[in-house]
Simulated scan of single mutants.
Amino acid sequence: MMLEHEYTLLGGVSRLNIGRYLALISAGVSATVVFILLSSVDLAQRFGIAASLPPSVLSFVGAGTVFSALSWLLNRHAWRWKFINDFLQIPDLSGSWTCRGLTIETKSNPQLEWEGEITVVQSWDKIRVRLRTKTSASNSRSAALIKDGADGWRLFYSYHNEPKIGQTELHAHRGFSEILFNAALTGGDGEYFNGHGRYTFGTMKLERVVSDDN
């Protein structure tokens, strides 16, 4: 089951404009390929070689097909390529992050330190933020990324949390989190607010987990 959802991007290049650019590029690529194919057939016939171009081939290299292929490539891979990412202005938050949290003490809740792991699944147009701790797990439901020219990138997201089996004192709840990532995207500081089942709030400190492949 796919749990990724769309996210809003503020401060980067408009996705509407990117769609227009892709449409123009697709039309140009399609026209060029069709011209080359037709020229090849014409050249072959001049040399007495029987050659034809089935309509299915022209359909395969049509602008619609090229647009779909370019859109898939951009959404899954190309948006991470440095020269494209520099243009799109989208931070790549995908991967694993260690999380050290602190629940702020209130009259109804004691101060509590906790640890967890955040996994971010991200593409050009979708994202999923999953937090797992020893007692519960949560998944984002909506998100927005905002470019902060002074400090880095801010991620805002709402989430739904479910306690693990056996955690009878905990209740499922919904909440909201704001995380400020540094410009290098190696760490971040955040805050969270819970409600609808667990009325707590606190702070988080994130550090990116660097894999051996990097």
Rank of each mutant, 00 (worst) to 15 (best):
G19S: 06
G19Q: 10
R20H: 15
Y21N: 07
Y21I: 15
Y21S: 11
Y21E: 10
Y21D: 05
Y21G: 12
L22S: 05
L22Y: 08
L22A: 00
A23N: 08
A23I: 08
A23Y: 07
L24S: 07
I25S: 02
S26M: 02
S26V: 05
S26Q: 05
S26E: 01
A27W: 05
G28H: 01
V29Y: 02
V29L: 13
V29A: 08
V29T: 11
V29N: 02
S30A: 15
A31Y: 07
T32L: 15
T32S: 11
V33W: 03
V33M: 11
V33P: 00
V34L: 12
V34P: 00
V34E: 06
V34H: 04
L37K: 03
L37R: 00
L37I: 09
L38D: 15
L38T: 13
S40I: 09
S40W: 14
S40K: 09
S40L: 15
V41D: 00
V41M: 00
D42V: 09
D42W: 12
L43C: 09
A44Y: 02
A44K: 09
Q45W: 04
Q45F: 08
Q45Y: 03
F47K: 14
F47N: 06
I49C: 01
A50F: 06
A50K: 09
S52F: 12
S52W: 07
P54R: 12
P55I: 10
P55Q: 13
P55R: 13
S56N: 09
S56M: 09
S56L: 14
S56V: 15
S56P: 02
S56R: 12
S56G: 02
V57P: 02
L58K: 00
S59M: 04
S59H: 08
F60A: 15
V61F: 07
V61D: 03
A63R: 04
